[in-house]
Write a protein that binds this DNA or RNA. Structure first.
Lengths: 204, 204, 204, 204
DNA sequence: GATGAATGAGAATTCATTCAT
DNA sequence: GATGAATGAATTCTCATTCAT
């Protein structure tokens, strides 16, 4: 993350910054990035629109930092899972669980990611989104394929299609999940895994 | 659909209208409604921005008509399924299949719906989105609950959560589905249903 | 000059464009480019600030077009002089005379050039200013050096310094010259040449 | 120079002030007054923008002080010349020489003066610029006219035009002069005077 | 003397929309 | 049906300036 003239990411007193980013993320998630005006963010933060520019270069750089921070943390979790050598089924379970935990902690960022990443990824500045996306895809496909090879997962399903369904369902949950609601992330993960692994039909 | 001063919906030359709406839908889907300028649509249609206003009241009315048309057709299909008395499992299968078919025919509209409906639904003008949404929810919940009661679907899953997962996965497919690609809508539906009904894990 | 989406330089109906550019040039010359707001230009042109953007991409592109147009015309004149084979003294006279004529026709553009070109030349977009500058320098230096070689100009003067003095004096005239004032450009050129060639001191 | 609330001009630590003004002058000269932000000056001085306001009332007051200081010193020199009773030719030579010396010492201030004085002079605060200008004009015109009367200068040249040419050429040198370059101010003055007095053409 | 965080008044620019032709 | 030219409101961003600490 670049530092130019403004204090950006200086490490010193990132408290206000982080607070402002939380506010911005909330608004972006709710109204969409384009539909959000900096004035709305500033209002929400109790300051004037221009004042935001003391802390950030631009509206876009806020977005970038929100997504970057989120993906950094996400991959900390994913990498730990992937290096744990859990076997295909265990890995899948851990990835899903980890994902719902991230949704719990970064609901707004996930919602933004979900809605905007396709368009953003085309911009150089947001190339990291595309990178993350393909790393993500590789991790999932590998896991699914190993599972099929190990006869843990069915081999009559199209792995790529399955990947897409799983990927989307997990993340789209950010659009309805409310932290502190009736279901904990772990509970949601359990239910989701049960559905995806064993299906919703009763076995005879 | 309202008529004000302009010939709108006059029945005369609805061909051009429909063509323009298709163009608009494509652009809305690709760039997002807010990020789309009427000029982009007009460029795509080979005319000047101002000229669109001969055909439509506003950018918003284009959006409305796109979504309305789509939902009308969607419910034609759904209603037929729901009235066919297929039983819970059959209904679920038919609803999913119908959905993928709609994605095939109205990919752009579905993508727009997916991305914008939450925000739009708050506006009076787009109240029909909320209506459709709740009708949709009722249909699905009823189907799932009847399935549980009939011991066709597992009763250890939270019906509401299951509904959300199924709902989202189906529609989110619009974001990656390309008509004329390798998978037909029927094939995608079959794969999806297989996963959701029986799970991806191998049964012992 | 690039054409993207806007009618720019389309050749069709350049009347309004040219008029607007004249207005803009006048204001830029009077207040300085940075100190000029697009609103001022628009006011002067009897329209709203935003309306200017129907005709031009940006304030900067107005500036660019003003300077480019001016330099194009200027070099038409200079090239004709340089190719006429007039000999050093004749060439110098013709260049000076041509310059004052250009000041007469493009007073505003010359004033802008004079004041802003140094800063602008650093920007890629205004690289043509630097090019013109060095072409200009080459033409003058060559003329002066040939004059010295031919014993038409004194050889005890530093050619480079002389060039600078001559160059600046000519152009700086744009800051006080008023078209239609008491002195015609030809008269000014004659006086200036008399001073530079023969000096202001009385010969004994 | 006014004192309001801040210690300004207190005599205490005028060193820092002078240093800051030198820095500001440098930046103003390079980027233009309007295009210069107080932050750039502060950066250059190793402090934050707000801190400048401990030393100065405003950006404008920095500019005023820079120009005032320069003109005060300039007139010290000019007045000495004008009172020395050197005769028209000697006076002209001394004025030019003095001017190039001032450019050597106050390059930045001269460059600023050259670029901004016309606009500034309109403001009440900068009325001293106009005063200086007219005093300057009077001194030159008187000298030239006396020279013509004494048959030291040619009488077939328009005195006013000659004045303008001389005035501009001298000052515009600030735009290319670099202190410590190959030519000393005295050398430049000599060359310039030789050109203006005797012309660049070879005498037969 | 200096910092950090803000203010507030513009600035350029965008864009949906209008309307005479 | 369409064009060309404009409107006007909103938007992002800039920057001189203030002030408590």
């Amino acid at each position: 993350m670049p530092t130019k003239k403004k204090p950006q990411v200086t490490g010193a007193a990132p408290a206000r910054r982080r607070e402002l980013l939380r506010t911005a993320a909330e608004v972006f998630a709710e109204q969409g990035y384009n539909a959000t005006t900096v004035r709305t963010i500033a209002d929400q933060a109790g300051m004037l629109a221009g004042s935001l520019y003391y802390h950030f270069d631009s509206k876009e750089s806020m977005l970038e930092e929100i997504l970057h921070t989120f993906l950094d943390e996400l991959w900390d979790g994913y990498d730990a899972v992937l290096e744990a050598g859990l076997g295909p089924r265990g890995t899948l379970q851990a990835l899903v669980t980890e994902s719902f935990k991230e949704i719990d902690r970064h609901r707004a960022a996930v919602a933004i990611y979900q809605k905007e990443s396709r368009q953003l990824a085309a911009q150089e500045r947001f190339a990291f989104l595309a990178e993350s996306q393909s790393k993500f895809e590789k991790a999932w496909l590998t896991t699914l394929e190993r599972g099929v090879a190990d006869r843990v997962f069915r081999d009559d399903l199209d792995v790529r299609l399955t990947y897409r369904f799983v990927r989307d369902t997990v993340w789209v949950a950010a659009s309805w999940y409310r932290p502190g609601g009736q279901h904990s992330p772990e509970e949601i993960a359990r239910q989701y895994l049960s559905m995806v692994l064993d299906g919703i039909a009763v076995r005879e």
